[in-house]
Amino acid sequence: MKKIFTLSAASVAFAAMTTPVQAASDEVNVYSYRQPFLVEPMFKEFTKETGINVNVIFAKKGLVEKLVQEGEYSPADVILTTDISRLVELENKDVVQALDSEVIESNIPAQYRDSKDNWFALTIRTRSVYSSRSRTGKLGAGFDYADLADPQFKGKICTRSGKHPYNVSLVASMIAHKGEAATETWLENVKDNLARKPQGNDRAQVKAIKEGLCDVSLGNSYYLGKMVSDEKQKAWADSVYINFPNQNTTGTHVNVSGMAMAKYAPNKENARKLMEFLTGNTAQQMYAEVNYEYPVKAGVKRSELVASWGDFKADTLPLEQIAENHSKAIRLLDKVKFDL
């Protein structure tokens, strides 16, 4: 039986530990920022195939701090998270260890894994641009992120906070491609084109398009699938087109969800088995169907809805290079006072 703990309950239980956690032959412990509905079906299938039980702590924040506090007494084996910045944070805080796996290496393209094997991507999501069906129409194949700074979009753009990890990663990728000076100018012009102060989440921006507050917005691709499947939000989704910028240049910016092996994993072999399973066909197909994400493994079929959005060219910039520009991106966002 898979055990599911809240972060607070687990903290109390693990705080009392005074000796390193002993390995168990039939279990693996996961700390997860990913939601239960998404990963529980995969864990059940993994247990069915291997006989290894999966114990999970789900949390919205605080897992890195928890791992640091627990140190060598931590029961964590595998960490699941979203966004390249959070994967790199795990590495920078020295709470993960390298995993050399031929299976994972063959399943995940090099640009989507750490060169030192400290973390690995599991799914891909695009940072797309949504456009009003009635007022703007489908943006052409030549549309670039750079075009969001064009005067034609004056007062027509909505976005969540510039300092949200999804937007920070986009800005970091632009720094990598165009340099800091050009990216700063771009940010200033995009800010001038905003219809309102950055606020809300990605879905709130599509809602604003439906309500006529703006005509275009930045948003992760999988949110369109979530809105389509939500009776209350389907009208929002029906009011927009999803666009994949930079198809004639560098390709659409992509971010990831990912995993890493905890530094003091007591069940290292079971952790390796789970991590390899999550990169395989079964789990990758589940990711695609449940959360409308793009599988990171080549050849795995997309969900029917995601496939209906069409093919796109993804930016081939290594995730590590994006991460290297993360702090520069935050400095630029602060400098231009993007959220103010």
Rank of each mutant, 00 (worst) to 15 (best):
L224K: 00
T249S: 02
S308T: 12
E91H: 06
L305H: 08
H164G: 13
Y287W: 12
V168Y: 03
F244P: 01
D114S: 14
Y241S: 01
K263C: 02
S132H: 03
K273E: 06
A235L: 00
N189H: 13
K197N: 14
W309F: 14
K93I: 11
W236L: 01
A283S: 10
E72N: 09
V290Y: 09
P165T: 05
D117H: 15
D334T: 06
E27K: 09
Q69F: 03
R203W: 12
S303K: 10
G299V: 13
S173M: 14
K268L: 05
Q284M: 08
Q205Y: 04
F277W: 01
C158Y: 03
N281V: 12
D117P: 07
G299P: 11
I175M: 06
I4P: 05
N193P: 12
A314I: 10
N270H: 01
V168I: 12
K197P: 10
T18P: 07
M17C: 07
V290D: 13
E188A: 15
A16V: 08
Q111D: 12
A288G: 10
Q97F: 04
L333R: 02
E72W: 05
E89Y: 03
A9C: 02
T81S: 11
N167L: 12
R203G: 10
L99R: 12
F277E: 14
A9M: 06
L122W: 02
